[in-house]
């Protein structure tokens, strides 16, 4: 490889030297002034070139869409994700339409109105009607896109879902822990000053709500299918981002703050394996905010179970009450206040 690059560099220098010679020669053909014919030739090259570039470029665009599409993310595995994908497709249709029309017009005009012998440009400095039309049309189209987009946004992040199960996703350099709130559906209090090897979440054992909390110790989290899950995100050290690409869900983890995202998984891992025709398929939770050197390794496998399987798995997880008792921290910090950010 190094040799290849060396060769490339040497070749590059040789090409430049050669080019220099050509340039020198061409300027030395002394007093040579560009004629009108030369200019027309140049304009032809550029105009035809741009036209070809457009045709090839747009063909490749179609080709890329066709060939990459099957390898993008599979069907959305959450309830809101289906709506989001639909919204995305509507947007793509509008964008694709405008893209093709404007690019074709641009390059076609560039080609058609290139300088040729005797051509005179048309003095056309303004047209108020046209300006109004092409201000109004984008305004209307965008209004529709804004409204449909905000409806989804409202459904996903601004609507309190009933019967949601509280689950905490906790991130630190460079791993995840998931904590389940148990029967009382309340996450017990925690404090970052209590963090030890034994108590990685800094849980306050004296809090009654803590009794039935359990948390993961491995690199795998399970969630039950068909159940709204309200994730509460917390970070230990720096900002992380919990990105669930298959569920079309993402939220940052911010030290000193609670953030939330609620979604309902609709397809179990087993079913998704069938849909994708891939026995090894697994959902994944990725860190999507640069968080340090090993950022790219910070992931957790997500398994969507049937409710029965989920319960079985939950029983095997680490119980918060097994942590030896911690001192109460008088001055409670912000970690567990039930507030979203107001900034």
């Amino acid at each position: 490889m190094t040799i290849l690059i060396l060769i490339a560099v040497i070749l590059g220098i040789m090409v430049l030297v050669k080019l220099m010679n050509i340039v020198q020669l061409s300027t030395q053909v002394s007093g040579y002034e560009e004629t009108e014919d030369d200019q027309i030739k140049e304009n032809n090259y550029a105009g035809i070139g741009l036209m070809l570039f457009m045709i090839i470029g747009l063909s490749l665009t179609v080709l890329m869409i066709v060939s990459y599409r099957p390898h993008l993310l599979p069907v959305a595995a959450s309830e809101h994700g289906v709506g989001l994908d639909k919204l995305l497709n509507i947007n793509w249709i509008v964008i694709g339409f405008v893209f093709f029309i404007t690019q074709i017009t641009l390059f076609y005009f560039a080609h058609k109105y290139r300088h040729t012998k005797g051509k005179v440009a048309y003095f056309y400095p303004m047209n108020h009607k046209l300006e109004i039309v092409w201000t109004a049309i984008p305004t209307i189209v965008l209004s529709i896109l804004i409204v449909t987009g905000l409806q989804e946004w409202h459904k996903i992040l601004m609507t309190e879902k009933k019967d949601a199960v509280n689950v905490q996703v906790y991130g630190y350099q460079f791993a995840w822990i998931t904590r389940y709130s148990g029967k009382d559906n309340t996450l017990g209090k925690s404090n970052y000053k209590l963090i030890t090897d034994e108590n990685p979440l800094g849980l306050e054992t004296s809090d009654p709500a803590m009794k039935d909390d359990v948390y993961t110790t491995g690199n795998e989290m399970h969630i039950p299918v068909g159940q709204e899950i309200k994730f509460q995100f917390n970070a230990r050290d720096v900002i992380h981002s919990a990105y669930f690409p298959h569920f079309r869900a993402q939220m940052n983890l911010v030290p000193g703050m609670n953030t939330f995202f609620t979604f309902k998984p609709t397809i179990t891992t087993e079913e998704m394996r069938k849909i994708t025709k891939n026995d090894k398929f697994d959902y994944v939770l990725l860190c999507n905010k640069v968080c340090g050197v090993a950022h790219y390794t910070m992931k957790m496998t997500v398994v969507v179970d049937t409710p029965e399987d989920f319960k079985k798995w939950l029983r095997k997880q680490k119980k918060a009450r097994e942590i030896s008792s911690t001192p109460t921290v008088a001055e409670n910090t912000t970690v567990n206040k039930e507030v979203t950010a107001t900034l």
Binding site: N43, G47, Y113, V120, Y122, Y124, P138
Partner: peptide, 24 residues
């Protein structure tokens, strides 16, 4: 909303090329 003035600019560029005498 930023897309609106941006679209106007693009359309104006394209309209400038219309019936021009382009020196490339």
């Amino acid at each position: 909303m930023v897309a609106i003035p941006s679209a106007v600019k693009v359309f104006n560029y394209i309209a400038t090329l219309w019936r021009a005498n382009i020196q490339f």
